[in-house]
């Protein structure tokens, strides 16, 4: 189908974008970034925004760098930027492991990291990673700037605490400590399709014991979250089959899985168990 009519705006800086959005937000005016989720929704007419504010010409949103041990990701940074080596250390490693699992080569060359956070699909890999890494979302509007911790950001499937007139200008992520090990595993039925569930993990190993474990599960519930029960099962344990099985079991027990026509809760729970164990195993390789 063809998208419904709308008015197109192309601001050249952030202030101008915020001003336009403030004017049009109440008429379902929206930001368009990569358009890789919004354009399909408009084609289906699930979304019929009357105004689109295109932030793709705002060069200031291109920032991708580490400053004061914080990774800054501007709103124009596309999925494809996160190739191996683009970002230093274990933080860069986990971004590079996750990136190829998003959509496909062409979609990754336009879709943006911050757009994924704004869209908040339950199965978004970046949302699960932002959750793992305690990201902070920097939102800008004519009313000023607001920093939203990821723990207070998602509030339902494809729903966030971002106000209609707010633009995500950047995500900020504290970088992982140098020796941190990371792992990622997701299961989807077709290459490039949205995952049924995924797990992303990070932990250190000191004197043969797991330290600072983090486990984030995505795709299983309305939005990703850290699974504290699984983290507790890992903390201080010797890395290996027993600890990983215990953490996987804890994650499977902790989630309240979504159901749909082809995936019931029990099946999704099984996938969470397997994904958590495999992500942990990968982190040791």
């Amino acid at each position: 189908m063809k998208p419904a009519p709308f008015t197109y705006h192309r601001p050249l800086n952030i202030d101008e974008a915020a001003r336009i959005l403030a004017d049009v937000a109440e008429h379902d005016g929206r930001i368009i970034a990569g358009g890789q989720s919004l354009a399909p929704m408009m084609a289906f007419r699930v979304a019929r925004p009357q105004h689109l504010v295109d932030i793709d010409e705002i060069v200031a949103l291109d920032v991708l760098c580490i400053e004061d041990a914080t990774l800054r990701i501007g709103a124009r940074v596309r999925h494809s930027r996160f190739v191996p080596g683009a970002i230093a250390g274990p933080t860069g490693e986990i971004f590079a492991k996750v990136m190829p699992n998003i959509a496909n080569y062409s979609v990754r060359s336009r879709g943006t990291f911050c757009g994924s956070l704004a869209h908040a699909d339950p199965a978004s890999e970046w949302c699960a990673l932002a959750t793992l890494l305690d990201a902070e979302i920097i939102a800008r509007s004519v009313r000023g700037e607001r920093r939203i911790p990821v723990s207070a950001y998602f509030d339902g499937a494809m729903s966030t605490t971002l106000a209609p007139d707010e633009i995500i200008i950047e995500a900020r992520i504290p970088v992982l400590r140098e020796e941190t090990r990371t792992g990622f595993y997701e299961f989807s039925r077709r290459k490039g399709d949205f995952a049924i569930a995924m797990a992303i993990v990070a932990f250190g190993v000191e004197n043969g014991r797991i330290t600072s474990p983090r486990v984030s599960v995505g795709g299983a519930e309305a939005y990703p979250r850290r699974i504290r029960e699984a983290e507790r099962a890992l903390d201080g344990a010797a890395p290996g089959a027993d600890a990983f099985a215990a953490a996987a079991e804890a994650a499977a027990a902790a989630v309240d899985p979504m159901e749909d026509a082809v995936t019931d809760a029990a099946y999704r729970r099984d996938i969470v168990r397997a994904a958590t164990r495999r992500a942990l195993e990968q982190a040791m390789q």
Partner: peptide
Amino acid sequence: EHGVCGACTVIVEGEPVRSCLMF
């Protein structure tokens, strides 16, 4: 016409792009 098949792929500024997802 919603980003899944790639039959519409063209190259924009050196990048392969699904032209059904770009205005």
